[in-house]
Design a protein around this nucleic acid. Structure first.
Lengths: 332, 332
DNA sequence: GTGAAAGCGCTAACAC
DNA sequence: GTGTTAGCGCTTTCAC
């Protein structure tokens, strides 16, 4: 593996000159430049990024910390972050926390301050203020939970409004016993979506009934199915359900079908995230569609600016969303 | 950020001693050990992995190169590789090639020899022998395509047998016009699955009809839907379809439903990959289930052994699979 | 057992 | 414009 020194020796110049050429420094004598370029070609030189970064004090890596890659929303997001990061010459280290507090803590601690230039974190259990302590000195951009009061960069949609929009759509269908699946004691986004749900019901003059709010400790298909089964066996089952993500909604639809309850005829179902899976389901899923590409771009961009200038005041970027109406709330 | 030198100064010993303690070297005078440990604690020392690796000549990173993370199979696989790698103290760099030849070439070239200790590659367009040239000197483990004749480490299931098993199941249902979706001019796995399809038909004494073999240039839901639509509008539509992955199958089921063709009554559908999405679909999907955890473990393990000993002969690991029979081929 | 010092490959003062 | 050289933080001979 050729080093700068090798190239310099071959070209008959100093390492400095080679370094200048490699790094695109403008003022190099044309003759030297071409000799160096030839030597570069001949040796197949590739810079050792590790050494370069050691010297520059940066790593060239960015960490993307998500609960689980099997959750389609995070898989899609990860793909988009990968693309956005590549444009800024960042490599992405993806870490899974499995949604536990320990997972999130350990992950950030293990990455430490040397491994990465910064992190984009989609926290599930941890709260924003924890990050200051866990990752002292490492730039972090938070995804999801909107905590305007904390001094940390943040990207996300307006979860309250998004949920409110979705539930208003169910109200508009004439449904009156509208349930929610996904309440969670510690998740900020869950609290916000629940708030939006409550507001939409209040807007319509409908009561908020505790028996129609189903908790889900995880947000997988199985949890949605279980919650739906519980709701449907209650004395007064719902005629519509707003699920806090598409996975829960998929499980809910499945549970309904297994009991012979028709979607949307007997119960309309709306989800959240607009994963591609939902668009192809039977029925296809009505869902809140966050602009995931915008989230990814904003997050990478924000992190980049923070790395450049650690002193700048924290910023809260609100990305757009829309409601995708499909079969699961279509017709009567 | 404390360095080894800082710790040494605080403990009143040399960097060597600190290094010995940090790296768990056994023979350190107990007194010094405890002083160092205190200093370590007091400074909150964290080794600079970049520097360590520069010195050791390794990077601590492994690249996982996949076509796209939005494909659930790869998302699931990536999650499992992440876990397996963590046990060997490897960080994982995930790269998306988007399934193009350029993407695969550029990715490996960009990673270069310094960034990573090795790569686990799931090639779509590239063939195994390309990797030798692209990534000279960097250890590579191939996933998927089984090319026993090439001198490269490889992990995968027996695609021919797996496809044959799935199609035999459709034959066992009494179906006679069995189609295949997913033929592809350049993909090794596609060729192998097509071969298994042919063998199963031959086993049953059924003819292989070209009009029942649908090509799919991509393996997304949309492609499955399009192929199914084509098959169903033919003069003699199929009564069963074997799709080369679950995404194609999901699209195929959707396309059938849109035309009022019932699954499995009118047409039975089987997929490949056993993604969780298929288990919750309506109908749930019969599918070939590769042992993904075994694939991930074997790949990381194989790569580890190759890094330790670059001279060892290439190995081909065959991981198990099973057939998950569900609603999409259930009943008559 | 421990210390001094070289050196991994690179960048960036600083000198010329 | 280009060469010399120190040093990023670490591991590791080689002395002692």
């Amino acid at each position: 593996m050729a080093t700068l020194k090798d190239v310099a020796a071959l070209a008959g110049v100093s390492v400095k000159t080679v370094s200048n050429v490699v790094n695109g420094y403008a003022f190099v004598k044309p003759e030297n430049r071409s000799r160096v370029e030839q030597a570069l070609e001949a040796t197949g030189y590739r810079p050792n990024l590790g050494a370069r970064n050691l010297r520059r004090g940066r790593t060239g890596f960015l960490a993307l910390v998500v609960p689980e890659l099997v959750v389609p929303y995070f898989a899609e997001l990860a793909g988009l972050v990968l693309r956005a990061a590549r444009e800024l010459e960042w490599n992405v280290l993806i870490e899974q926390t499995l949604g536990t507090r320990e997972g999130e803590r350990d992950t950030l601690a293990a990455l430490g301050p040397h491994m990465i230039d910064g992190a984009i974190v989609s926290p599930e259990a941890l709260e924003a203020r924890d990050f200051g302590e866990l990752a002292p000195g490492i730039p972090v951009v938070m995804l999801g939970e909107h905590s305007v009061d904390l001094p940390i960069d943040h990207v996300g949609i307006d979860n309250v409004e998004a949920a409110r929009t979705a539930v208003a759509h169910l109200v508009g269908l004439g449904r009156t016993r509208i349930a929610a699946i996904g309440a969670h004691p510690h998740r900020g986004t869950a609290a916000q979506r629940l708030e939006g749900y409550r507001l939409a019901l209040a807007d319509a003059g409908l009561p908020v009934r505790d028996d129609l709010v189903a908790t889900a400790l995880n947000y997988h298909r199985r949890d949605g199915a279980e919650a739906m089964a519980r709701l449907l066996s209650a004395p007064e089952p719902p005629d519509a359900v707003f699920c806090f993500n598409d996975l829960l909604a998929t499980g809910a639809v499945r549970a309904a079908a297994e009991r012979g309850v028709r979607v949307p005829h007997d119960v309309a179902v709306a989800g959240f995230d607009n994963t591609e899976e939902g668009a192809y389901g039977l029925p296809s899923l009505t869902t809140v569609a966050p602009d995931k590409a915008a989230v990814a771009r904003a997050a990478v961009d924000l992190l980049h600016r923070r790395v450049e200038d650690p002193q700048r005041p924290p910023e809260h970027v609100r990305t757009p969303f829309s409601l995708q109406v499909r079969e699961s709330t279509g017709g009567a």
